[in-house]
């Protein structure tokens, strides 16, 4: 009986329509890190609509987010800018005046509109531009038309993957710096610890010897 059901399921799966050629849509992202650098990204997606978090994830930018149950996901950091996971589990914003947090906007006909529902609760439609700004003041997101954003992000027609570019305040494209291990400092740290352990062990041995002589 079970084998027959499995066979039927396999047969149905084999005949199921696959590879439906879905139309690819495009949406844009403008991310202001609060230090003068701004990222422009163009993201292709096949679905009719996706949410703001999925758009961020699909952009290929490094995203750290924390789930908040039914409230959806909270954004901690984008491309290393923002707050750490431990702070994010409580609240990124501190009690300091103008303490920054991630502001979430959608570009509408009247300019950038603050989204109070959070990124998990919004629908991204083809041609939408969403904005993120790490600031404690009014975000100064640049108004851009979709074609301009596509150009700034380096997206080319026919691409099926997201494209993004980060520019500084002068408009120069920023390339991420690679970090290497500080081996010399690690070596010095290990040396200090070894000296400390040896000093304590030596003193302990000397004390033991002097006690045994008494």
């Amino acid at each position: 009986m079970t084998a027959a059901l499995l066979l039927l399921a396999f047969w149905l799966a084999a005949w199921a329509p696959v590879g439906v050629d879905a139309e690819t849509h495009l949406a844009g992202l403008v991310i202001d890190y609060g230090d003068g650098t701004v990222t422009y990204a163009t993201v292709p997606f096949d679905e009719e609509t996706i949410d703001g978090i999925e758009l961020l994830r699909a952009s290929g930018l490094s995203l750290v987010s924390i789930p908040f149950g039914g409230l959806g996901e909270g954004v901690c950091s984008i491309e290393g800018h923002g707050c750490g996971v431990a702070d994010c589990r409580r609240l990124c914003q501190t009690s300091e005046p103008n303490s920054p947090f991630w502001h979430y906007y959608v570009l509408g006909p009247d300019g950038w509109e603050l989204q109070n529902r959070g990124a998990s609760g919004t629908d991204v439609l083809p041609g939408d531009i969403q904005g993120w700004s790490w600031t404690g003041d009014d975000p100064d997101l640049p108004d851009v038309a979709f074609e301009v954003l596509r150009e700034r992000s380096g997206f080319e027609e026919g691409l099926d993957t997201a494209a993004s570019r980060t520019v500084d305040a002068a408009g120069i494209v920023v390339t991420p710096a690679s970090s290497s291990a500080p081996w010399q400092t690690y070596g010095a740290t290990a040396l200090i610890l070894v000296v400390l352990i040896c000093a304590v062990l030596l003193a302990a041995r000397r004390r033991q010897t002097s006690r045994s002589q008494i």
């Binding site: 950091s77 740290t189 200090i192 610890l193």
Partner: peptide, 22 residues
Amino acid sequence: RYEPYPDLTWPAARIPLVAGLC
């Protein structure tokens, strides 16, 4: 402070801090 997110990088080390903690 060290955060392994979003990229797993080498943690920073400072000799004065290590010496102080000894």
